[in-house]
Simulated scan of single mutants.
Amino acid sequence: MVGRVRRSRARRAAESAFGLLLLLKAVVAGALVVALLAAGVWVSWDGVRDALASDARGTMTVRSCTQSWCSGPFTPVSGGAARVVRVDRLVSRGTGQRFAVASRPGTSVVVRTGVAGVLFALRSVAGALLLSALALWVGPGLRRWAWGAAALGVALIAVPFALG
Rank of each mutant, 00 (worst) to 15 (best):
Gly3Lys: 08
Gly3Tyr: 05
Arg6Thr: 12
Arg6His: 08
Arg7Lys: 09
Ser8Pro: 12
Arg9Met: 04
Arg12Ser: 13
Ala13Glu: 14
Ala14Ile: 01
Glu15Ala: 07
Glu15Lys: 08
Ala17Ser: 06
Gly19Phe: 00
Leu23Asn: 00
Ala26Cys: 01
Ala26Glu: 01
Val28His: 05
Val28Met: 09
Val28Tyr: 05
Val28Glu: 04
Ala29Glu: 03
Val34Glu: 02
Val34Cys: 03
Ala35Phe: 10
Ala35Leu: 14
Leu36Tyr: 07
Leu37Lys: 02
Leu37His: 06
Ala39Ser: 10
Ala39Gln: 08
Gly40Asn: 08
Gly40Lys: 11
Trp42Leu: 11
Val43Gln: 12
Gly47Arg: 06
Arg49Thr: 14
Asp50Ala: 06
Ala51Thr: 04
Arg57Ile: 13
Thr66Gly: 13
Ser68Trp: 08
Ser71Met: 15
Gly72Thr: 15
Pro76Ala: 04
Val77Glu: 11
Ala81Pro: 15
Val84Ile: 15
Val85Lys: 09
Val85Asp: 05
Asp88Leu: 08
Arg89Thr: 06
Leu90Gln: 06
Leu90Gly: 05
Leu90Arg: 07
Val91Glu: 10
Ser92Thr: 12
Arg93Glu: 08
Gly94Leu: 03
Thr95Gly: 11
Gln97Ile: 14
Gln97Asp: 13
Gln97Gly: 12
Arg98Met: 11
Ala100Val: 12
Ser103Leu: 15
Pro105Gln: 14
Thr107Gly: 13
Ser108Asp: 15
Val110Tyr: 04
Val111Pro: 02
Val111Gln: 00
Thr113Leu: 00
Leu119Asp: 02
Leu119Gly: 02
Ser124Gln: 04
Val125Arg: 05
Gly127Met: 01
Leu129Asp: 06
Leu130Thr: 06
Leu131His: 00
Ser132Met: 09
Ser132Lys: 05
Ala133Asn: 08
Ala135Cys: 02
Ala135Thr: 06
Leu136Cys: 00
Gly139Ile: 02
Gly141Ala: 02
Trp147Phe: 13
Gly148Ile: 08
Ala150Met: 05
Ala150Asp: 14
Gly153Ala: 04
Val154Pro: 12
Val154Lys: 13
Pro160Asn: 03
Leu163Gly: 07
